[in-house]
Design a protein around this nucleic acid. Sequence first.
DNA 1: TTGTAAGCGTTATCAG
DNA 2: CTGATAACGCTTACAA
Lengths: 344, 344
Amino acid sequence: MSERSKPAKGSLAEVARQAGVSIATASRVLNQSSHPVAEATRKRVLEAAEAVGYSPSALARALVTQRSRIIGVIVGDIVDPYFAEITRGIEDVGAKAGYLTIVCNADRRTELEEEQMRVLVDYHAEGVVFAGSGYVNDPKGEELARLVERARERGMTVLSLAHRDFECPRIVVDNRAAAYDLTDYLISLGHRRIAFIKGPAGLYASEHRLEGYLAAMEEAGLEPGPVFEGDFTYDLGHAAALRMLGGAELPDALIGANDETSIGAMTALRQAGVSIPEDISVAGMTDTRLARFTDMTTVNIPLYQFGAVAARRIITGESDGAGDEVVLPHRLVPRSTTTRRGGR
Amino acid sequence: MSERSKPAKGSLAEVARQAGVSIATASRVLNQSSHPVAEATRKRVLEAAEAVGYSPSALARALVTQRSRIIGVIVGDIVDPYFAEITRGIEDVGAKAGYLTIVCNADRRTELEEEQMRVLVDYHAEGVVFAGSGYVNDPKGEELARLVERARERGMTVLSLAHRDFECPRIVVDNRAAAYDLTDYLISLGHRRIAFIKGPAGLYASEHRLEGYLAAMEEAGLEPGPVFEGDFTYDLGHAAALRMLGGAELPDALIGANDETSIGAMTALRQAGVSIPEDISVAGMTDTRLARFTDMTTVNIPLYQFGAVAARRIITGESDGAGDEVVLPHRLVPRSTTTRRGGR
DNA sequence: TTGTAAGCGTTATCAG
DNA sequence: CTGATAACGCTTACAA
């Protein structure tokens, strides 16, 4: 009978009408506002809310408060455990604070990152996390940098979890040192000829890891190489191992720029009848679940922490100037795919 | 000088002012509205938009159009490749249509799913995808079902990618048949004693897979077992294998309820000096990247398709009644971890 | 303690 | 072809 007015299903207006109070009062009790409300009224509102199934419109709220409670994370590929673990870190702390986590796959392509970034800006994401590394001298980086700058001007927090060419606070690991430490460990095991499979060409992370490897070799007075092309995938790891098998003599050890690469290589090696670690030691980098599952030596990068720390920062809104950088510790994780030279 | 009025940075209002047109006109050109606009005006608006860096507020737009362009996906754990691949499918087709994909980790706990669902409703997600399976006779299912019902009443599309106790369209695979086919394959290879490691207790997916295995055994006149407890994790797969090793005699073959479980088992087996597939054949289920990386026999479930199909349905808004179910095909994928009985 | 009303940035209706 | 103006659902001074 009295049903044909306006309030939408589950809206504040409906609750207010039900409870016979103003929309403002209803809002006050439903938002633990500090504004005083009579106990009796509060109760009526609460009941009405329950009755009509009140569900606050986060959209409307975001519009007026200018806080969307949305965090965007731009990853290369959510299926890659590297990015999945980061995302998990973000979502865990985000959800606990009532934030939404939006994942955007960019396939490591700058122009896609750009596109995703635009959408995130449109949705007034409070923070955007660039999970992946950038490219050295990326021509497309210009435009992205501009976008990031604009986002910051609009109050968004932009963070990156790897080296990037645009200005923004970073949460990273020292890839160079990580690769150095791993190589050094292999050397300490008595290995002399240590091969390396690279990451995607041009990526800062790839370059840094390669540099760390080269530095450790040089410092030990060892000649580096062979070095193979790679792109963080199983397939290229596999291919590199095949090429290695075709070469003169098998090296003492092999390092892949990430875990997946090394697993591809190990598989090829084993299929060719090579025993690991007896015939050759193999190690990866990152320590994703893959490494653990295959009991592979690697160096741990605190992925989950990356995400958790980033989310925390976005939520608390402390963006300490645009230029700071926090370096999280990496850690060598020796497992069964490496052993002392001439292995037991 | 004339700077101290109101329009926000990058807003329509600002563009309109810059271009010297009404906000309505600006909106029209910036939204490929069918409404006619003079070419000259259009150009001015476009230029102004470019100049001020116009970025439409998706939030405001969503509020008025009642379309948020947000898709939520509730997963057990985004790090699990099972869910990651589904999410990738959703995001790929979603992004192409300008949709945002929100991931919510629920750790397979109904009460967390409920909580996540609430947030998604608050944000007026156009669609919600329940990626994981539900529990048989779940007491907490009641409340979730109510929530889902309410969501649907509000126009949201709710889909599930596995068996669920609430009413909603489903996109699934026949888990029973998948397990049956795999078991049958092993039998055809000459195996007689085939062990099975279960999935998480009470999950429909677990039950169905177990049933398929049991049915195939029975139909072949074989006595099933041993059957071990499991929960889709590497650790329990590993533990089950250990227990199996402690038993009298090794079975001919072993099936894990998912890939990760089987990999855990294989690792334990190999560490104990057991050769796969010579001493025992091992197979998993799902065909995640893990299976491919370890060259393990498994049965493929089209995860990416699950996501893609679900997203497509949400976007096009064709939710064909609440009760339909589309069954996607599974496919046996024989690889190197299984071989004919007494294998070469 | 409660209500009124002015936005938040869009879209959409209806006049000019 | 263009411009007011009323929503959308909510928060928040400002009044009462």
